[in-house]
Simulated assay, not measured.
Amino acid sequence: MEDKYNQLHLDRYSKQLSNLLCDKHFASHDTINGPQLISFTPIKQVNLFIIKELLLKWHHEMANLRSPYFDYEHEEVKEALLNFMNVLSRKILMKRNAFEPLLQKAIYDTFLIVLAPVDTFEEKFLRIQEEITLPKLQENLKYIDIDKQLFTGFIDTLSPNSRDREYILSRFKLYTNANQGSRTPLSSIVNQFNPLLPVTEGEIEGLAQSPAARPAPVAPVQEKEIVAPIHNAQREVPASKPVYRRDEDSEEEEELTSNARPTLNDNFRKSATASLADSHSNRKIDSLKNSISINQRFSFINELFEGDNMTYYNVIKTLDEYNDAFAAKQFVTSNLAQKYNWNHKQDHVNKLLRLIDRKFS
């Protein structure tokens, strides 16, 4: 059984630590290169996951080079591409804006090896495999440091004919449950990260309680406004008059001048009416995960999460754990929207917000 963990806190911790480490490095460097990358943190697993994620993005870029006008299967072309990739791999050079997201994900994924080994196996070993073979599975072991014996031992149990993803994943779940005693404890990971940025096991496991007891994340202080409900989203306010809003906590009226700088929430509200009109149903849904259609899921993955299905899965899982629409929508508009730069994705974001409304209607 995989451990429960506070996904929101883990995400915040990963973001804070990656920001802290980048502040230290980029205070004296404009870029980071390959040799610096290999030993960037004292935690080997984090460095390995940075490299693996970098290689994944690299392969995606190489795939984009393909053209219908040339024979990319020709042996000479394949050899030239291989040589090109080998040269390029020795010329790694990144600025902070490109490197920091890789570091944040690597920190998060390092905790997941202990907290959710099945999810780790699915992403790191099965996600990018066009064809599953034992050599390809074994190749991925070089990016594993924590609990490497667990992953190696399982792969050694597979036959060369094991090609089905679902079968392999179900086998790994059984194997993990049967080898609980050999897994690295969470305390060991926490002790590795503590010198970099203090964290406790209790903070990581903070949501391992009943859904009713889970506290909703506190809204950021710097941005009080949220995406308007349906009935407010359809109202038009004259631009020439100042708008007054009553703060529910302080009961004080606050004037919002007409020339105020638009927030992300303002941008999303602009197309709210149109996107809501596109909704085919107002029926209540029990969960986002089970109610999003295949086509909609692919649309969200490609448009909102840059093709990363694991990030999509984790976000939807988090949203399903909220207890009210206000907190869930605030997480979308104040956290995810800034993290993934959704300024020009209003249509897709509003579809997601509408699904949240249906869940809590």
Score class of each variant (00 low, 15 high):
Glu131Cys: 02
Ala239Leu: 04
Asn323Phe: 06
Phe26Tyr: 10
Leu207Ile: 05
Phe300Cys: 05
Asn309His: 14
Gln234Gly: 04
Ser281His: 15
His74Arg: 12
Trp58Leu: 02
Pro238Thr: 04
Pro229Glu: 06
Phe172Leu: 03
Lys173Asn: 08
His344Thr: 15
Asn343Met: 10
Val114Phe: 12
Lys124Trp: 01
Ile43Asp: 08
Ile132Tyr: 12
Ala325Asp: 02
Leu355Gly: 01
Ser250Ile: 00
Glu123Asp: 13
Gln7Leu: 08
Gly206Cys: 10
Leu276Arg: 14
Ile301Gln: 10
Ile144His: 11
Ser361Thr: 08
Leu276Ala: 09
Gln192Trp: 01
Pro217Leu: 08
Arg297Cys: 10
Lys329Tyr: 04
Pro262Arg: 04
Gln180Pro: 03
Leu196Ile: 05
Thr120Glu: 08
Ser361Met: 12
Met94Val: 00
Val243His: 15
Arg165Trp: 07
Gln36Ile: 02
Lys317Cys: 05
Glu75Lys: 09
Leu196Pro: 07
Ser67Trp: 00
Ser279Arg: 13
Thr257Gly: 14
Tyr312Ile: 08
Gln180Leu: 09
Phe70Ala: 06
Phe172Thr: 04
Lys339Val: 06
Ala274Arg: 02
His344Gln: 14
Asp249Met: 02
Leu48Trp: 00
Asp147Pro: 03
Tyr69Ile: 04
Ile107Cys: 05
Asp308Asn: 14
Pro195Phe: 08
Leu304Arg: 10
Gln192Val: 00
Pro238Cys: 06
Gln138Glu: 15
Glu122Tyr: 10
Val114Gln: 12
Leu48Phe: 01
Ser361Ala: 13
Ile294Thr: 12
Val199Cys: 04
Leu126Val: 10
Asn343Lys: 14
His9Thr: 03
Asp286His: 07
Leu65Glu: 03
Asn265Glu: 06
Tyr167Thr: 12
Asp286Thr: 01
Arg245Gln: 01
Ile38Arg: 03
Phe151Arg: 11
Gln192Thr: 01
Ala228Asp: 09
Leu102Met: 12
Glu131His: 08
Glu223Lys: 06
Ile51Ala: 11
Leu319Ile: 07
Asn265Tyr: 07
Asn290Pro: 01
Glu251Lys: 09
Phe300Arg: 03
Val77Ile: 13
Leu150Gln: 13
Pro68Thr: 12
Glu223Met: 06
Ile285Lys: 05
Ser250Arg: 01
Thr133Ile: 04
Glu251Tyr: 07
Ala212Trp: 15
Asp286Ala: 06
Ala27Leu: 11
Phe193Tyr: 14
Tyr143Ile: 00
Lys173Ala: 09
Ser250Leu: 01
Pro229Val: 02
Glu236Cys: 10
Ser182Glu: 11
Asn350Met: 04
Ala274Met: 03
Arg354Ile: 00
Pro211Ser: 07
Lys4Glu: 10
Leu137Pro: 06
Arg183Trp: 14
Ile230Ser: 13
Ala239Gln: 07
His9Glu: 09
Leu21Tyr: 13
Ile294Asp: 13
Ser291Glu: 09
Lys329Pro: 00
Asp278Leu: 11
Leu276Ile: 12
Thr311His: 07
Ala239Met: 05
Leu169Gln: 11
Gly202Leu: 02
Thr157Arg: 14
Pro195Gln: 07
Lys4Gln: 09
Gly34Ala: 08
Ala27Cys: 11
Leu102Arg: 10
Ile189Gly: 00
Val77His: 12
Phe151Asp: 07
Glu223His: 08
Ala239Gly: 00
Ser210Arg: 15
Arg245Gly: 00
Tyr322Phe: 15
